[in-house]
């Protein structure tokens, strides 16, 4: 087949990404950690590690343990804090053309708002991803993401301060009805939804009868969660996102172009690579090439046509 021009660009709200590939928060560092392996400018977007108002040390070790086709992590939102992020990392981010999204987290709504206000002043940041779904901190995080009333409140409060920046709300799968949470976020101004964060899980050392992770529990990610993630993305797409016209940034266990395409067919506009980067730090670039080939094979001229094409 002729190498026709395929339009890989997708739209996240008002923002155009050159392709659907993004990094997942917490798995690709703050900005330049992947430089030795790929050209960050080839990515559709970059989502940073979660940033909080004050720096956080994070949990004791072990912070990770491998499981069958996956891993558990309990990093505990270790990060340098918003002040240092703005001072040290924004200048690095300015070197790239890629739209950068800063993932933000906190223990109180005021903290989220304070971090959002600070980051909104940075021109180079395209948007914020609201992490209301981290399973590894004692307060805040996931408790916000499991209660629709709190999701309304936090999305609404942050939306007031972010002005023209894109607001993505990241959902946890650790709920009975993910669509109820998605609806709450969309109603209160989320420009996009991202899903899914990790599943709360545990690994036990049977010799010591103790959990392996110092935090006892951790979040399961990687290929093991992919089919569940695809299902949840399709569910949120059908029940909330499609009718509201809100794009989904989706991931969970993506390693290959086929994985990414599954998510797009299920309803994703953009896809994120998390755990996959640990094994193949250059996999995003290969996935972009793979998506191109798939489009050629299926005579698709624009990848955006694929979103939600599930029969």
């Amino acid at each position: 087949m002729k190498n026709k021009n395929i339009d890989l660009s997708v739209k996240l709200g008002s923002l155009k990404l050159i392709n659907p590939l993004m990094t997942a928060s917490g798995t690709c560092g703050y900005a330049d950690e992947l430089d030795d392996f790929m050209d960050i400018n080839l990515l559709g977007g970059f989502i940073t590690k979660s940033i909080t108002l004050k720096s956080r040390l994070g949990n004791d070790v072990p912070r990770i343990v491998e499981t069958d086709s996956g891993m558990l992590n309990a990093i505990g939102l270790a990060n340098i804090g918003v002040e240092k992020f703005v001072q040290e990392k924004i200048p690095i981010i300015e070197r790239y053309k890629t739209p950068f999204f800063v993932n933000i987290a906190g223990e109180t709504i005021d903290e989220y708002v304070a971090v959002a206000e600070k980051l909104t002043q940075c021109k180079r940041i395209a948007g914020l991803e609201l992490n209301i779904s981290c399973p590894n901190v004692k307060k805040g995080g996931i408790t916000f993401g499991t209660d629709p009333a709190l999701v309304r409140q936090i999305t609404g409060e942050v939306k007031k301060v972010v002005k023209d920046k894109l607001l993505i709300v990241k959902l946890t799968p650790n709920v009975t009805d993910i669509s109820a949470i998605a609806r709450a976020a969309v109603d209160c101004g989320a420009d996009a939804l991202s899903l899914i964060n990790t599943f709360t899980a545990m690994v036990i050392d049977i010799e010591t009868k103790r959990p392996v992770l110092a935090n006892r529990t951790g979040g399961l990610s990687g290929p093991a969660i992919k089919p569940i993630a695809v299902y949840l993305v399709n569910k949120v797409y059908n029940e909330v996102a499609k009718s509201a016209g809100v794009p989904l940034v989706a991931g969970g266990g993506i390693r290959t172009a086929s994985d990414a395409i599954e998510f797009i067919i299920a309803g994703a506009t953009a896809v994120t690579i998390g755990t996959g980067s640990f094994v193949s730090p250059d996999c995003a670039v290969k996935i972009i090439e793979g998506i191109k080939k798939y489009c050629l094979r299926h005579s698709i001229t624009a990848v955006a046509e694929l979103t939600g094409s599930l029969k």
Binding site: D36, G58, V61, R63, N73, F278, P281
Partner: peptide, 15 residues
Amino acid sequence: ERRMACGIGLCQSCA
């Protein structure tokens, strides 16, 4: 030695 998920500074597992 620490348990390492990435070995290249992406994940902060090896504190």
